[in-house]
Simulated assay, not measured.
Amino acid sequence: MHALTIAQPTEVNQYADKSIDVLLNMWLHGKSQSTQDSYKRIAVKFLTAIDKPLVNVSLDDLQQWVDSLPSANDNTRKTYINIVKSLLTFTHQLGITHYNVGKVVKTPKPKDALTERILTEQEITILIHSETNQRNKLILKMLYYCGLRATELSGLTWGDLSERGDGNGQATIYGKGSKTRVVIIPSNLYKELEQLRGDAGKADPVFRSRQGKGFLTRAMVWEIVKKAAKRIGLPAPSPHWLRHGHASHSLDRGAPIHLVSQSLGHASVATTSRYLHAKPSDCSSLYLG
């Protein structure tokens, strides 16, 4: 099998003798560990499927691979295609390939299913209060009230949390795209977190794994949310559904869109505006009949 190589030894290129792992590490440098893991997994799937050195990947190879992707989930197809296009762009920029064949491949536009992923305030309230484990209950509360991503929550240390003069707390979040933001923690939630702390130091995780003092993984956070949802008969949501709920419900209650965008760490207000479109307050259909 020649798929997991960059080029034949006869190729004249300063990267030709590098392993594919070295190339992938260069491509993903600076991204979070969870992003690196998922991107590498998909890139290796692609290279294994086409079964030829990376430098020889043609447009036909890429198109055949795209056609082979399952059509049931357009969002997954979009993710796979965008990741491989990113890899091919990177190799072209390095001069490994003469042409960027990924540039001409169109990324599908899947149905926006955001509205299907927004739980009601009542559903989230029941989800939280049905959780009997105190650590897990606080995890659900932090995901919702602070709008955190699973990776942001799992990496929190006590040094990231501090008390404010107004009785509320605040968390310094190191988020997506290596951006740092500060999120206010409501006073009651902050008091509950302080009770959880015990004798933990600043470098210790806010939410410890059950095996000891280690950090939770993203997968562990997913499992906690999944079990809590199953307990009350909800479809298995991801932790991100609580973040969706934070955005949608705060906008419903009159929070300025720029404030919600800043709190969630969105790259632009346009991303936050999707929540307004998912649950419009008015529609021309109401003016008919």
Rank of each mutant, 00 (worst) to 15 (best):
L119Y: 06
P108A: 05
K111G: 08
V104A: 13
T89I: 04
L94F: 06
R117W: 05
V104N: 11
I118P: 04
T115E: 15
L140Y: 07
T120R: 06
E116R: 14
A113M: 13
S86G: 15
I128S: 09
V104L: 15
H92I: 02
N133H: 13
N133T: 11
E121N: 10
I96E: 02
L87C: 05
I139C: 06
I128A: 10
E131V: 09
T97K: 05
L138M: 14
I139G: 11
K111D: 13
N133M: 03
L119M: 07
K85T: 01
E121Y: 06
K109P: 03
I96V: 10
K103D: 01
T120G: 07
K103E: 05
Y99H: 12
G102V: 00
F90Q: 05
H129D: 13
T115I: 11
L119A: 04
K106C: 00
K111T: 11
L127I: 07
V104H: 12
V101W: 05
K103I: 02
N136C: 11
P110I: 07
R117D: 05
L88Q: 02
N133F: 11
I118D: 01
T107S: 13
T107M: 00
Q93V: 08
P108W: 08
L127V: 01
V104D: 13
N136G: 06
T107F: 05
A113T: 15
K109I: 06
D112N: 15
S130Q: 15
Q134G: 04
Q134K: 14
F90I: 03
L114Q: 08
Q122H: 14
Q134D: 11
P110Q: 09
D112W: 10
N136K: 12
R117C: 03
T115Y: 11
K106P: 00
G102L: 00
L138T: 10
I128M: 12
T89D: 12
N100L: 03
N136M: 08
Y99E: 14
P110Y: 08
T89H: 14
L88H: 06
R135L: 07
K137G: 05
T89A: 10
Q93C: 04
K106D: 04
V84L: 02
V104C: 08
